[in-house]
Design a protein around this nucleic acid. Structure first.
Lengths: 202, 202
DNA sequence: ATAATAATCGGACTACGGTCCGTTTAGTCC
DNA sequence: GGACTAAACGGACCGTAGTCCGATTATTAT
């Protein structure tokens, strides 16, 4: 018998997850990916998901809280990868390059990210209350603010970061590309112009 | 008998509105204003509105198409006033002032507008499909684009206008003020900084 | 006035996100 | 193994936006 639990057991974290709960979470994530592959993220309803996964509707909501929460869970891997790239990865996205170059790279990567995971990202932030309190969104904004300060931005970096973040909103970007027919390259070029002008004061 | 109809009759416009339809539209608008005055725009549901106005639910939707359409109708007066102010009114908002000053004034007025009609504006653009194809929003964006060109903006004025428009999104502005506790003055100052930097290239 | 017609009306109906609560079951302690 | 407890389960239920279609009514021509 071991007195010391060998791995994530009862050490201060949430009291672990019951086995049936874990099993159902996997089932649900699998079913969600299937449905999205078949019909797209927009067509995924919580009822269909529950049916496909063979669980009750209540279970879906207990696991993910809301439709947006489910979408965030589905995105969490690529989201975490993105975060670690701009926080710890190689320049110009990661630390080591000048702030302006990092800002440009950040926008470019973010636009590419939205082009790839667009519908999911949109669905993930389409929550009724507060699309702006999603931890990921707050992190991006603080990151932009940090880079602005690093570049000597004197005029209210918080609000400048907010404006720049608004430019990268998935909903807007997807509309620009899918409805207006603009190319991602053009969006990226415009982002470069924008941040350059904002950083270099008038 | 008169061969020529004396007023808005059958002259090319929509074939006029039946009297009961007009009466019901007035009833509905009145009831909507009452409900909003009592409980706020967010608490206005189409069922309650129909009940208060004493009409069927179908009538509400035939008149306004959707909840967002109703909100747009409620806003149309102040919206039209705003539009004519920045298109034909006195400087610095209207023509006569330099483009940059007009841009600054536009943002300031828009922020004030959102502070006053915020919930309505948010509800009006919260339509499922395409919040960006609302005629009013497209007009603002083209106006900003026009002012940018006037100031000699060389770098993709259309997308720069899109970014600036994103900054003025009612949802974001309301969140900044009501949740984050920022003051409208601070938003206005930041807008001034932003457009100044964007217009004066690097 | 009457009939014909086309628009309007009303409310039952659907789809969806989200909640609630009585029932079941996994983990634990004896 | 058996009893106990807290968590998980499931699906009935709710509120809401939006649709549909048979019944109604304003309007116009005769």
């Amino acid at each position: 018998m071991s007195f010391i639990p060998l791995l994530p057991g009862s050490l201060s974290g949430p009291p672990a997850e019951r086995s049936d709960a874990a099993r159902n979470r996997e089932r649900l994530l699998g079913a969600a990916r299937e449905l999205i592959a078949e019909c797209g993220a927009d067509a995924l309803t919580m009822d269909r998901l529950a049916e496909r996964a063979g669980v009750g509707k209540g279970t879906v909501f207990r696991r993910f809280g809301s439709r947006a929460g489910l979408m965030m869970t589905l995105l969490s891997d690529s989201e975490a990868a993105f975060q670690s790239r701009f926080m710890f990865g190689p320049p110009p996205l990661g630390p080591g390059a000048p702030g302006l170059e990092r800002l440009v790279a950040f926008g470019a990567e973010r636009i590419a990210y939205v082009m790839e995971h667009g519908d999911l990202a949109r669905a993930a932030e389409a929550s009724a209350h507060s699309r702006y309190e999603v931890p990921a969104a707050m992190l991006w904004q603080r990151h932009i603010e940090h880079l602005l300060r690093e570049e000597g931005m004197d005029a209210d970096p918080l609000l400048m970061a907010m404006s720049l973040t608004a430019t990268l909103d998935p909903d807007r970007l997807l509309h620009a590309v899918r409805v207006q027919g603009l190319t991602p390259e053009r969006l990226t070029d415009s982002w470069r112009e924008l941040v350059t002008r904002v950083v270099r004061g008038p």
